[in-house]
């Protein structure tokens, strides 16, 4: 297994508030990792630091053998780490097609290529096939602001995946989505990313989603990683049960064991 991302001793403080403390993570190629933790536990801070939106106070982030600490998001994106957002970041008043066309154009063009026309037939064909993979082709000409939440989430993730990144970090892909739709949405996303052999880290609150799609779990609590283990193991970890899953999530060990088999399914997918 090849290590693609290595995070060592990452710290982030805002004044007296410690948002991240002693974060150490090694991510291997093709892994599907779930990031769990209560609100304010430091999950999004972690994603923000790795993707360059926040500058860590100290520590070390290495991607594909290269130090990426302190680089802005655009450079990190160009190196191969992309992300989606909890609140979809799309071009709201434009059509779905135009959103993706722009994503392709920015990804593909560099130097003098920026001065070539925005529209060309080959690019349009790529946009359309991408729309199909994410199953949002029927919304091709709809304005982004009018989309149902699930479609907007898919568009956001599809835009992040345009560059075919080595690592894609998804910030709560299923937040704001009804329970019935969650699995359908995740199936679409994970299938598309599996084809691209993308390494995925995603933040998730729903443990059923975690069990089904993820082979390994990072559990955050108060800015620290309190558990980094294969999914089945992590979900029965006492610390995780106390600080992350909480009391609403009553499960017996047998149920957790079922979860284990699901977890392995996720492993197979990867």
């Amino acid at each position: 297994m090849t290590v693609v991302l290595e995070v060592r001793d990452l710290q982030k403080t805002f004044g007296a508030v410690v948002a991240a403390k002693d974060i150490n993570v090694t991510v291997n190629e093709h892994e599907i990792i779930g990031i769990i933790g209560a609100n304010g536990a430091g999950k999004t801070t972690f994603v923000n630091m790795v993707t360059g939106y926040l500058k860590p106070t100290s520590g070390h982030i290495e991607f594909a053998g290269r130090n990426i600490m302190g680089l802005p998001p655009r450079d990190i994106t160009n190196l191969g780490i992309s992300r989606s957002f909890q609140v979809p970041q799309v071009f709201t008043s434009e059509s779905v097609f135009d959103n993706l066309q722009m994503a392709y154009a920015i990804t593909e063009a560099s130097g003098m290529g920026l001065l070539s026309p925005l529209y060309n037939d080959e690019r349009a064909a790529r946009v359309d096939s991408h729309l199909k993979r994410y199953q949002i082709a029927e919304y091709r000409n709809a304005t982004a602001s009018t989309l149902p939440q699930g479609v907007r989430k898919l568009l956001d993730i599809a835009m992040a995946a345009v560059s075919n990144p080595t690592i894609l970090m998804l910030d709560e892909p299923t937040s704001g989505i009804s329970v019935e739709e969650k699995f359908g949405l995740m199936d679409i996303i994970m299938e598309a990313l599996r084809q691209d052999e993308t390494t995925v880290l995603f933040i998730e609150h729903d443990m059923e989603i975690v069990e089904r799609y993820v082979s390994r779990v990072l559990a955050f609590y108060q800015g620290e990683i309190i558990c980094d283990a294969p999914t089945a193991e992590a979900l029965v970890d006492s610390g995780v049960r106390e600080f992350v899953i909480g009391e609403e999530y009553h499960r017996t060990r047998t149920e957790a064991a079922n979860g284990q088999s699901n977890g392995q399914e996720g492993d197979d997918n990867a």
Binding site: S82, Q89, V90, F91, I106
Partner: peptide, 10 residues
Amino acid sequence: ENEIRVEYLG
């Protein structure tokens, strides 16, 4: 429309 997206597209 969205500068953050532009940055994250590279």
